[in-house]
């Protein structure tokens, strides 16, 4: 393709604009990174900065002092994210497909049923009663996976993507003698690859970032995921600084993890997801063009 000078100029402007956006996204992260490498006394003296003036690795040393805990938490997080994403995308897609089909008779009812869960919830205590007492899922790795498998928001997202698939292709497949599942696999999956990849990415983020399920249902240290390790560190400090006047004397604040350690932990927790993101990006290009299927 030969591009005209105006088009080239346009592209340069787009790049400049994107550069602005991207730097806005990266600068705060640099602050986090720089804090993870700065000692508290340096922050007190010189303030925060984007580039560590005198790199100090104590934060990382503190966090890595106990590698078993960290590795185990990585293990739990990776496992729940993998299984959750794989099963979740199947559950979500299978629910979204009929919702996207104008010929599905209970479409409206099902859509309402799904949408309702986005608005109403039973609240913490009833949910806990069902999950912990009725389903007996406490201290079970499944409790970190099952509650998030069906997600109304993801299902609607998928449904909207599926709606762009022309019905003619579906009917053509049916005439060829394919049943519902085969049609889904042969027609929908290849055509909706970017959509499925997007939602799979969202599933994996949801699982990777969650700490709340662990807070409620996990008592065994060996089942603690990475984000709960992080959130525990954060909330310990938060609580003490907020409630210091209410607490009995002699709460020793010196034992709290320093800021650099907390930021180091945070960076260690997001690291793997950057790779995952790159992996999903592969699918953000069109798998098969419509024309190929039509032919």
């Amino acid at each position: 393709m030969v591009s005209s000078p105006t088009a080239r100029l346009g592209r340069i402007f787009i790049h400049l604009f994107m550069l602005l956006i991207v730097s806005l996204c990266i600068i705060p992260l640099m602050a986090v990174f720089s804090t993870s490498l700065t000692s508290e006394s340096d922050i007190a003296q010189h303030g925060y900065s984007l580039i560590p003036l005198r790199p100090d690795t104590t934060g990382y040393e503190l966090v890595l002092k106990n590698p078993q805990t960290l590795l185990r938490a990585y293990g739990v997080s990776i496992l729940t994210t993998l299984v959750g994403t794989l099963v979740g995308i199947v559950v979500g897609a299978l629910c979204a497909w009929p919702l996207s089909r104008p010929d599905y008779p209970h479409r409206k009812k099902l859509a309402f049923f799904v949408m309702f869960t986005m608005l109403f919830n039973g609240g913490l205590i009833p949910t806990y009663l069902v999950t912990a007492n009725l389903l007996q899922l406490k201290d079970n790795i499944l409790v970190l996976i099952l509650p998030y498998l069906a997600n109304a928001w993801f299902i609607f997202l998928l449904r909207t993507f599926f709606q762009t698939i022309p019905m003619s292709l579906v009917e053509a497949a049916r005439i060829d003698g394919a049943d519902e599942f085969l049609t889904f696999r042969k027609v929908v999956v290849p055509l909706a690859t970017p959509a499925l990849a997007t939602v799979a990415l969202f599933y994996s983020l949801q699982y990777w970032n969650d700490w709340y399920l662990a807070l409620l249902y996990i008592n065994t240290e060996s089942l603690v995921p990475l984000q709960y390790l992080l959130s525990r560190m954060m909330s310990n400090l938060d609580f003490i600084s907020q409630n210091v006047s209410a607490m009995p004397a002699g709460v020793n604040m010196s034992s709290l993890p320093r800021e650099s350690a907390r930021m180091a932990m945070c960076l260690l927790a997001i690291g793997p997801m950057l790779f995952v993101f790159g992996y999903f990006q592969k699918y953000f290009v069109r798998g098969i063009t419509l024309g190929a299927v039509k032919g």
Binding site: G47, G278, Q281
Partner: peptide, 30 residues
């Protein structure tokens, strides 16, 4: 671009609050 734009989403709000504090703190903010 896409990858970098996604960075902020990986941070929990607690961590974001620290990052913002590094900029906005009256005494030591950037």
């Amino acid at each position: 671009y896409q990858t970098i734009m996604f960075f902020p989403y990986f941070l929990s709000w607690v961590v974001v609050s620290y990052a913002f504090y590094a900029f906005l703190s009256t005494r030591s903010g950037i």
